[in-house]
Amino acid sequence: MSVAPPGESANRGRADLMAYASLSLISIFCAIPFFWLLIASFDGNAQLFLRWPETWTFANYLRVFTKEDGAKWLFNSLFVVGSATVLVMVLSGLGGYALSRTRAWWKLPFLYAILLIRVLPSTALIVPLYKFLLTLNNAEGALLRPIFGGATRDIMRWTGFIDGYLGLILVLATMQLPLSLWIMKTFFDGLPRDYEEAALMDGATMIQRIRRVLVPLALPGLAASGLFAFMSAWGDFLLPLILLSSPELQTLPLGLFRAFLRINEIDYGLLTALAFIYLVPAVVAFGFARRFLVQTFSGGVKG
């Protein structure tokens, strides 16, 4: 460090202090809701206001999984959002690669057009979307019922477009795909063709080029695209609300919502425990992807 006059360094110290103080205040402000959640979820008698619990207990969590269908909600959420994320990663990986390498004239118009899907609020489109899915669903039902008869409903729970996993997975993936395609296209733009051509000259087949060269190189980008898809789909509330009705298909946010709406008194302990469970996967996903994110946003692949 260069020598600074004492007055100036004291000034800088004071400025640093101010910066740290205000940043700490802001972070405390942001952290308080989470803190409240955590504390209240272990409180035997949780209230609307932040308070130190008189008795610490796991009863709230226990209630989520015994009295309520918490395990089922958690599974539904993880399954639906996880499947949508995997779908988005596969499609955005392949599609982003194609969009990056093609010289077709429609490339840019296409890229901007798909962003519209993301920009337009899904709420505005929910009626036509529902109509469309309902038509598909009815067609599927008409097709399956003669074959499977009474078992049709059980099958449609997985493959149905309305009140079935498949429909929600597809719609959630569709919502996340544009941004992920952009992320992957930009990522592959920064990946020199030389890598593939070198592999080609070394005699790698198409599958080998993808598996041994492209996928490892694209991992940071895929992690970023998957993370955004997961976090955004995990937080989505409206689509499952509209598309799912069976109690056994409910997702975590829906369970939380319905628990909140109960007419008799509000059970804050249960709500906060549910909310905390709802938070955990998002935080875990962020933890996993952070390593890759840093790479992606600090200038692509090194080496």
Binding site: P192, D194, Y195, E197, A198, L217, K302, G303
Partner: peptide, 12 residues
Amino acid sequence: AMVFQSYALYPH
């Protein structure tokens, strides 16, 4: 065999 300008060494 070809040696590329960017070397194209696989970082992984």
